[in-house]
Design a protein around this nucleic acid. Structure first.
Lengths: 338, 338
DNA sequence: AGGGGACACTGAACCGGTTCAGGTTTTCCC
DNA sequence: GGGAAAACCTGAACCGGTTCAGTGTCCCCT
């Protein structure tokens, strides 16, 4: 089990290092018979080329980085990110790329520092970036660092796009939800969104407002932070403050929906009879809750696969492109069944 | 922004590559004055040493691997693994190690292939292994590959341990749970465990059986697979089959507990009045359920930190050690409040 | 004054691959 | 049969760090 090297293989076969390298990489310059001999020997010895040597000479790390910035408390409870990650990993593995993961709290400085480090050390070939922000500094930073990236959840911009990204039609999603509530007879609804610094939240807010306006519905906007407690507090505030209360609440993610549900329960407000609930993310939480919660299913796994695919394409061919996500589907459950 | 190298720094400063290297790595052989000049210049240029070059010459990848093997459906819903991962990442980041993540389905062959690849390519310096199995082939495999590893959830073996690992006193955990149920007046209980191929499940089964026997309680064992549906089916089977039914069910994880809860609801059996429920893992699911579910809190974050710490120690000093986990705590909630 | 050790520094080898320029051999065609 | 093109192969340079052996200086001590 002594460490074999390409020079070792070459000596055993009585040929040069160069030939071995060509043979292993499917490059022209070796006869078929030599190539077979090399491959067979490598197989027989369970030999793999050293990742770092290869990375050094190819100037390619063979890895893609992901920085997950989430509140420590939410980590693990956010099914969306995990499913996304799983989707990403599937595609990367197929493309022989490793996934380098870094978890930081919601701390932009640390995320930034991680990118700078990765770029400086050439430790990853590209990164996947989540949660596009208003005036997001990250695209400019990554450009400056010369680090290829794909922004998951980029805004739908002009053609050609300034950078690679996946786009989602949040207005359409908003319409789906609002229509559903309108059909169920709701005329006064609340929208408990995530922080408006996220571009997608801003688009959702606008989407909900516009579609509701088209139907003459009243919308109360409430900005929160995705946490369980925030959903809880939102409902407490919304239901206490208004003399004419809303009859439905749309939550920006499943956790807040759960918090809201708990608040309703605490207040003795029946769901869906008195107040209906919709979550903008589907997950096991929504399936398990009582009542089960109507939710927008956004297929995070597929989204991850698409985003990773874009990054690999960008790295291989330098092709910058924006791909739009398949439409989300509303899974209707008990929380709006009234 | 042209790629600087150590040779470039050396030329700018009019000294040799070697001196620059010594200065950067805190090695003796350079004067304080020179060291400062080097560090200042590196700082000024935002320069970092190339990870692959460093990895090649040091024969150290600077990364640790984790293979997450879970059913795709469960991915993201298993808060335990994610919290564990978060804990691991914290420690690795502090030790300047990257985390390389690979997700595979429950497919031992793929996990094995990943380790072989990582070892052959020297892509990671060590791995963290989860879920110790009966006759687990992985320790032997990793030993053969010369890949340092830490087994999270290793059995409590003799001194000195055969390999590094974290150990949990599952018998004590079992005792905590059984005592709680006994105190609440239960005399016939069921234990819906995960697959017995996991060592920790086997130990839990034995622990529950022994402690229950000590109190003259009856235990019905039921082996399941951690999935939501499995918990559901377990309850259906357990409550239908027995003419004298159990009054409490202990579930091996939170998902199955949720499934069981749904089954009770479907059967019109009240919880905790007719049947009490305990989950062996605490998570948001348990907090959110109605009724909220009594659960054993095992601090996955801490466990991850400890395991990662063991691995770093192993890599640094070669020290093989087993560390036992802090005791778990039972969080009593409504599901056993009757 | 001279011997010896500590210290600062350097050139060159090395880690294990990839790749280029050039050298041989084979093949093909007139 | 001879010349050109194609196919195969090789030595050496290179990627960007680390590290060893050795050179030169300076200082201290007897």
């Amino acid at each position: 089990m002594a460490k074999e090297t390409i020079a070792g293989l070459a000596k055993r076969l009585g040929i040069s290092k160069a030939s071995v390298s060509y043979a292993l990489n499917g490059q022209p310059g070796v006869s078929e018979v030599t190539r077979r001999r090399v491959l067979d020997l490598a197989e027989e010895l369970d030999w793999y080329p050293s990742a770092s040597a290869r990375a050094l000479s190819r100037s390619r790390a063979g890895a893609v980085g992901v920085v997950l910035s989430a509140d420590p408390l939410l980590i693990g409870t956010e099914p969306y990110s995990m499913a996304l990650l799983a989707g990403i990993e599937t595609v990367l593995a197929e493309g022989d790329m490793a996934l380098m993961l870094r978890m930081v709290g919601r701390d932009p400085a640390q995320e930034r520092a991680t990118y700078e480090r990765w770029a400086g050390e050439r430790k990853v070939d590209g990164v996947l970036v989540f949660d596009h922000l208003l005036d997001d500094p990250r695209p400019a930073l990554l450009d400056r660092l010369g680090m290829p990236f794909v922004l998951h959840g980029a805004p739908e911009t002009g053609v050609p796009p300034a950078f690679s990204g996946t786009t989602t039609d949040h207005a359409a999603d908003a319409a789906t939800i609002v229509e559903h509530l309108h059909d169920a007879g709701h005329r006064r609804i609340a929208h408990v969104s995530g922080p408006h610094r996220f571009v997608h939240e801003e688009e959702r807010v606008r989407g909900v407002r516009e579609r509701a306006a088209a139907h003459g519905m009243v919308v109360v906007q409430y900005e929160a932070d995705y946490a369980l407690l925030a959903g809880h507090d939102a409902v407490m505030t919304l239901l206490r403050a208004r003399e004419e209360p809303v009859t439905a609440v749309v939550f920006g993610n499943d956790l807040m929906a759960m918090g809201g549900l708990l608040a309703l329960r605490g207040l003795g407000v029946r769901c869906p009879d008195d107040v209906a609930i919709v979550s903008w993310d589907d997950s096991l939480h929504c399936r398990l809750a009582s009542p089960s919660v109507t939710a927008l299913s956004r297929n995070p796994g597929t989204q991850g696969r698409v985003a990773a695919g874009l990054l690999l394409a960008l790295l291989d061919t330098g092709l910058v492109q924006a791909e739009s996500m398949p439409h989300s589907e509303l899974v209707v459950r008990s929380s709006t069944a009234g």
